[in-house]
Amino acid sequence: MSQSEPGEDPRRAHHDLGGVTKFLCETVDTAPHALTRFDRRVDALRQILGAAGIMRVDELRRGIEAIPVAEYHRLAYYQRWVRSIADNLLRKGVVSAEELRAALAAGREAGR
């Protein structure tokens, strides 16, 4: 019965973190963390896609929530965003898997 302990309700989605028991004893890292160039660029791309009507913030959130729980907690904040942006653009056909694979291969070639 959920009325007893909502912090342990098994029906909860993993991103829905309010009051979740297993995090209650975790300390908060209150130190400042500077954003990296990568962080800023991902944030900027999200804004550009939103302003152009290509992907809404609601879609970004859906894609983040679709990340399997272990990876959701392992990935850094903007790494989740990249995963979600890729998920959404592929689903919508804005970018095809072939195009993305080719660009990945080209990037690996250039980085060699």
């Binding site: 909502p6 989605a13 829905d16 009051g19 879609e59 959130r61 929530e65």
Partner: peptide, 30 residues
């Protein structure tokens, strides 16, 4: 895609104010 936190499902509360009208995020997300 749900914007109602799990911990208030089935709970009672009091309306403080109407904030406005917005498109349903549960559909926008898909």
């Amino acid at each position: 895609h749900i914007r109602t936190p799990h911990y208030v499902r089935g709970r009672e509360g009091v309306v403080v104010r109407h904030l406005g009208d917005f498109p349903n995020p549960e559909d926008l997300a898909f």
